[in-house]
Amino acid sequence: MYRIRFHGRGGQGIKTAGRILGTAFFEEGFEVQDAPIYGAERRGAPMFAYVRAARAPIQERGVITHPDLVVVADETLVPVPAANLMLGVTADTVLLLNSGETPDTWRQRLNTGATVIALPVADAITDRAALPHIGTRCTGAAARLLGVISRAALERALRTELRALDDASLKANLDEAFRAFDAMAAHEGVVHEGAAISARAYEAPDWTDLPFEPARVAAPDIFAPATSVQVRTGLWRTMRPVIDYAHCHRCVWVCSTLCPDSAIHVRADGAPEIDYEHCKGCLVCAAVCPPHAIQAVPEHEAAKIEAGGAG
């Protein structure tokens, strides 16, 4: 059975990516199971989709804990614990990352023996409307890595799953998918069908007897204030607002008040400061800044500048 997990963010077309791949398998005569998994969280929040395909009816269900292929549509998910990218990844797994960085860099960074393949990001994405293409690109690449999906089956699947799109968007998505499909030619068939999960030798669950705990502990109550600041919603960001302090008028009641996420505070010197740990990158601040002193920079470029010490 092929077990494939797609990781991305809400709004990147991950659910559709899973369905395209599922349909492509189905077109090739496989039995298929595909589903998205998302919490009630939002656009920009981590989510994933999975696809199983086999020649016989599939009885496994739910989360894939023994993946053959893990597709990471958004590299900024790597440090996000909730994304749980590396769940069940072994030396037999193939990791496909949508990233400008090299496979070696990722192998080291992730400290993994898995086969890592990078799908170079097309261009710097500055137009957020282009984001839905990410899913289709990843699907195109994944189809080639599997080696059992023809170009024709992929196209039929794309046309089926994207039938609601207008002609121009459909063409853009088809182009993206095929460019990725072609780019992966050298890796065709690198993903192998995983074996059944053996009952002969397995790691037993460490079950425990839940002890009784009094209600003051065991009720879903929170006794500390503002614990949400521990959630780093800054990781949702694809575009980063950057303040040009030379042009900032210090009219903080504009940006600081209008930031939906309370992520712009006012420094002691009266200047605004963006809390990048929590800024989700909505860019409301850039849109409302009276002197236009806030610029939007693609997150991976901003991160590069930061790493280079130029920020």
Partner: peptide
């Protein structure tokens, strides 16, 4: 003087199991 958030949501099976089973144990 003692703020508290009561009856908050959980979004995963494990904490949900914990709170539900604790109610059963009680």
């Amino acid at each position: 003087s003692k703020p508290v958030s009561q009856a908050v949501a959980v979004l995963a099976g494990s904490p949900y199991s914990y709170f539900r089973y604790e109610t059963h144990l009680a």
